Simulated assay, not measured.
Amino acid sequence: MRFAVIDLGTNTFHLLIAESTPKNLKVLFKTNVPVKLGEGKINDNQIIPKAFERGINTLKNFSKIISKYEVDTIRATATSAVRSAENGKEFVLAAQNEANISIEIISGDEEASLIYEGVKLSGAIKDCSLIMDIGGGSVEFILCDSEKLIWKKSYNIGAARLMQQYFKSDPISNEEKNLILAKVQNELLDLFEVCEKYQPNVLIGSAGAFETFAELIIKKHNYLVNISEAKTYNFNFDEYIEITLKLINSTHTERAAMPGLIPLRVDMCVIAALLANYTMGRLKINQLILSTYDLKMGVLASLL
């Protein structure tokens, strides 16, 4: 059996094609495209025309690739940008009519569950852990241990939302940082309450921005690690703090010149660093693990 998974994120559309045999699961193809569906008006709940067009054109290309691989089953999931957009259903209809791809808009709760299933497959969950997935539109938190999911929630404080609302200076000003952190603190009160009870001692970063942090560290120190082939990566906490503080305090031009930083994340990574650092500081966590398996692998697991 061949499966295609399409993850329509707020910033990036992902396509993963895998083949299942009785003995194993083999990834045949994967790609991602920086569609930036949340560009411009995500906080106004609108997919702007340019982003709408980019999204449909990307799905048309994905459809051609899927046909070439003679896939048996396709599951396409849309998250925060489509979920919250007033014209999200129009986008779903256009995808069906123009790209022959049927999109399922999933809730934040379903998104968190699928992220958990994906991360679980990576083998990253050993102790009581907090999974964090920083998307463009939303951020998901999942409290879990090696045996079960304990608690989960999706928050509308994604990097694209916060960036469009607050990030106007270059480099980001202290005032803007304080406004972002005040917003985050106010949103995450129930997260801190549940973590007070369960005391997670590890933060597991689900792909995305955390892959960027890992790439920057690997490039800086010339480590012999290939993130694209790894399931997990254990951060040295001091190296992590050093690179994220550098990102937060750098100008756009300085960040753009950093080896390992893709154009899509040049500004978004500042917000992601603020979010992750605030969460770890507030919860007194100093162990950080990257899981390269995320929602896509969770969706694949659901198909299997």
Rank of each mutant, 00 (worst) to 15 (best):
residue 1 M to V: 14
residue 4 A to N: 01
residue 5 V to Y: 03
residue 9 G to K: 05
residue 10 T to I: 06
residue 10 T to Y: 07
residue 12 T to Y: 05
residue 12 T to I: 08
residue 13 F to M: 00
residue 13 F to L: 00
residue 16 L to I: 12
residue 17 I to Q: 03
residue 17 I to P: 00
residue 20 S to T: 08
residue 21 T to E: 13
residue 21 T to H: 04
residue 22 P to Q: 14
residue 23 K to I: 12
residue 27 V to T: 15
residue 29 F to C: 05
residue 32 N to W: 00
residue 34 P to R: 14
residue 35 V to F: 08
residue 36 K to E: 13
residue 38 G to W: 03
residue 40 G to T: 05
residue 41 K to C: 04
residue 42 I to G: 00
residue 42 I to E: 00
residue 43 N to P: 13
residue 44 D to H: 14
residue 45 N to A: 11
residue 46 Q to K: 13
residue 47 I to V: 12
residue 47 I to L: 12
residue 48 I to G: 05
residue 49 P to L: 11
residue 50 K to R: 01
residue 53 E to D: 06
residue 56 I to K: 06
residue 63 S to Q: 13
residue 63 S to L: 03
residue 65 I to L: 08
residue 66 I to E: 02
residue 69 Y to T: 03
residue 75 R to S: 00
residue 86 E to P: 00
residue 88 G to I: 06
residue 95 A to D: 10
residue 95 A to Y: 04
residue 97 N to G: 13
residue 98 E to T: 01
residue 98 E to S: 08
residue 107 S to R: 07
residue 107 S to L: 00
residue 112 A to E: 10
residue 113 S to A: 10
residue 115 I to W: 00
residue 115 I to E: 00
residue 117 E to N: 11
residue 117 E to G: 01
residue 117 E to L: 10
residue 119 V to L: 07
residue 120 K to A: 09
residue 121 L to G: 03
residue 122 S to A: 09
residue 123 G to E: 08
residue 128 C to Q: 08
residue 128 C to T: 15
residue 130 L to P: 03
residue 132 M to A: 12
residue 134 I to H: 05
residue 134 I to M: 12
residue 135 G to F: 07
residue 137 G to A: 06
residue 137 G to S: 04
residue 141 F to E: 01
residue 145 D to Y: 10
residue 149 L to M: 13
residue 152 K to I: 04
residue 153 K to F: 10
residue 156 N to F: 08
residue 156 N to D: 15
residue 158 G to E: 10
residue 158 G to C: 09
residue 162 L to F: 08
residue 162 L to I: 15
residue 167 F to K: 13
residue 169 S to H: 13
residue 171 P to L: 09
residue 176 E to R: 09
residue 177 K to E: 04
residue 177 K to N: 08
residue 181 L to Y: 08
residue 185 Q to Y: 06
residue 185 Q to D: 15
residue 186 N to Q: 13
residue 188 L to F: 09
residue 192 F to G: 02
residue 194 V to S: 04
residue 196 E to D: 15
residue 196 E to G: 09
residue 197 K to G: 00
residue 197 K to R: 14
residue 203 L to F: 07
residue 205 G to S: 01
residue 206 S to P: 03
residue 207 A to R: 03
residue 208 G to Q: 03
residue 209 A to E: 03
residue 214 A to D: 02
residue 215 E to I: 06
residue 215 E to F: 05
residue 215 E to K: 15
residue 218 I to L: 08
residue 220 K to C: 02
residue 223 Y to S: 07
residue 229 E to H: 09
residue 233 Y to E: 06
residue 235 F to Y: 05
residue 235 F to P: 07
residue 235 F to H: 02
residue 238 D to I: 11
residue 240 Y to F: 14
residue 242 E to Y: 04
residue 243 I to S: 06
residue 244 T to D: 04
residue 247 L to S: 11
residue 249 N to I: 06
residue 254 E to C: 09
residue 255 R to H: 07
residue 259 P to R: 14
residue 260 G to I: 12
residue 261 L to D: 07
residue 261 L to A: 11
residue 261 L to G: 05
residue 265 R to H: 10
residue 267 D to N: 15
residue 275 L to N: 08
residue 280 M to S: 08
residue 281 G to R: 07
residue 281 G to V: 02
residue 281 G to N: 09
residue 283 L to D: 03
residue 285 I to G: 11
residue 287 Q to I: 09
residue 289 I to V: 15
residue 294 D to F: 01
residue 296 K to R: 10
residue 296 K to A: 13
residue 296 K to L: 02
residue 296 K to M: 06
residue 297 M to W: 11
residue 302 S to Y: 04
